[in-house]
Amino acid sequence: MLRGLVNKIIPFSSVDGPGNRTAIFLQGCNFNCLYCHNPETINLCNNCGTCTKVCPTQCLTMENGIVHWDKEKCIECDNCLKACKNCSCPRTTYMTVEEVIKAIENTRPFISGITLSGGECMLQKEFVIELFEEVKKLGLTAFIDSNGSIPFYGDDRLMKAIDAVMLDVKSYDKEEHKMLTGQDNEIVFKNMEYLASINKLYEIRTVIVPDILNNEKNVDSISKRLSELNPSIKYKLIKYRPIGVRTEIIKSSMPSEDMMEKLKSIAIKNGCKDVIVV
């Protein structure tokens, strides 16, 4: 049976799309962004066992070369995440679609829908499709939070299952994007155009990172492109926050309100009608 590798489920989220949503974070990402604030979602566990040695409640154990996690015993102290040298997390669970649906049963009356996030949830595309097909049957909306590296185009079944996508456009410049994430951004822009053309682009997000990125150029170019596609699509400018990040690989600081307002005014000048700063 098809299973997804789930890092965690946040039953009520006010910041992952419209209304109240259950946000489901899948494990594994093909980007390695310098500013990643949840680097423990990047790689799959390699069963090295380092984490089992720092767990104060012995909820992590090695059995036949595999790290096991006892959810009941876990106190979420995050010692395992701090010790992991592989940007991974031992506290993940392989879940079937049925199991995920059962997990949201209690909160279903209170939510507008589900948002799949990550990691990069599109790396588990088959699971995304099957889960969302069931989610839709419950009358809930199905949203994706994606880095845009996997094509949304050319897959009718996928696009039928998804209501809308919230897309990270991290950098306009190809080289800068590569420096930041380790990957090219060609597909990201193709996705952006495609999703806007079929009215399934809920928002575009750019993280503003002083001293690391050419923020002004990024916002200027991305907002121009967005307003050409559809100026009503939300453009969210996110302040870099040095929380949960690997400070050994990034030296930056939170941008000032002035800087954010200046960037916002650039996007508005370029025609974007719905620009927000968070």
Binding site: S14, V15, G19, N20, P109, F110, S112, I276, V278
Partner: peptide, 18 residues
């Protein structure tokens, strides 16, 4: 911060009634 997303509270209110 929920002021940014009043629909969030609406969903909870509707669910409560349900």
């Amino acid at each position: 911060t929920v002021k940014r997303n009043p629909q969030y509270v609406l969903d909870i209110m509707k669910g409560a009634m349900k």
